[in-house]
């Protein structure tokens, strides 16, 4: 069993602030983390390894500092880590990113066949959920998105059964490996890595591949050149023209505030009164 887990390093968006004057993201001091959705993918791969043995390789495309994200994954129990890093990747959209990652995975396969590829549902920065499907299509792998549970895996016969979240229900799906799984959030809980893994993660010789090492000759497929989408403008949302109309009564008794609000609501929005009367019990 060999699983490849794709992880992205993202800014911890809970701590992102936008500069009020220049409308740019203030990244200084914002910690970078492993995309939280990717941890569900990693944990699932580690569970399969617990059960069937084998290897878990984590892959990340990003700047040199993304090494920290990969080491984090090693500390959870991943066996090997590859950082794909090259200035030529800068500005990649999802099409170019899936190209670079699929080339990397092909290169990994030259050393060891890959049975399963895992990605997260989406990232918290780009947030497109497009990279997983892109990798699967480029490799000709079966694509299983929004997987909530791996029901059964038959390694010898290359068969897998999963539950997939669909609109209005759950699909029970059977397919062949190798395939690509995007794991739904909340489906498992990331383990605490043990002390051995922590030491190993710190010492591990991480592989860093540039464009050529990742087996990419076609420079026109990556970076800005390989990206059909172009960001033409970044701007702040328009504030609503008016602040809320504040309901105030001199005594600020809850009862009087409530009655005043109702009177305002129903005179200014008569339809709302009918709407409420219609449904209220």
């Amino acid at each position: 069993m060999h699983s490849v887990v794709c992880i992205k390093q993202v800014p911890d968006s809970a701590q992102i602030r936008v500069h009020p004057v220049t409308n740019t993201i203030m990244r200084q001091g914002v910690p970078a983390i492993v995309n939280p959705y990717d941890l569900f993918a990693l944990e699932e791969a580690l569970r399969l390894k617990d059960q069937f043995g084998g290897t878990v390789t984590v892959v990340c495309m990003g700047p040199p500092m993304a090494e920290a994200a990969l080491r984090k994954c090693l500390s959870f129990g991943a066996d090997d880590a590859i950082l794909v890093s090259d200035r030529a990747f800068a500005g990649s959209d999802t099409l170019a990113t899936s190209y670079a990652l699929s080339a990397t995975i092909r290169k990994i396969m030259e050393d060891m066949p890959v049975d399963l590829i895992f990605t997260g549902k989406q990232t918290i920065d780009g947030d497109t959920a497009q990279v997983g499907p892109g990798i699967a299509k480029r490799l000709g792998y079966q694509l299983l998105t929004y997987v909530s549970r791996i029901v059964d895996l038959d390694v010898a016969n290359k068969e897998i059964q999963v539950e997939r979240r669909a609109e209005g229900g759950v699909q029970l799906i059977k397919t062949s490996t190798p395939c690509l799984i995007t794991m739904l959030e909340g489906t498992n809980e990331m383990r605490f890595g043990d002390l051995d893994d922590l030491f190993r993660a710190a010492r591990h010789e991480l592989k860093v591949w540039d464009r050529e090492a990742a087996g990419i000759d076609a420079v026109e497929m990556i970076g800005l050149k390989g990206s059909p989408t172009v960001v033409s403008k970044v701007f702040a949302p328009r504030p609503r023209s008016k602040r809320a109309e504040m309901i105030e009564v001199r005594d600020s008794e809850p009862k009087n505030l409530a009655v005043t609000l109702l009177a305002k609501l129903f005179t200014q929005h008569p339809k709302l009164e009918q709407e409420i009367a219609k449904r209220a019990v």
Partner: peptide
Amino acid sequence: FGGSLLCTI
């Protein structure tokens, strides 16, 4: 970034 900015693509 969670709606703090918009971008046109």
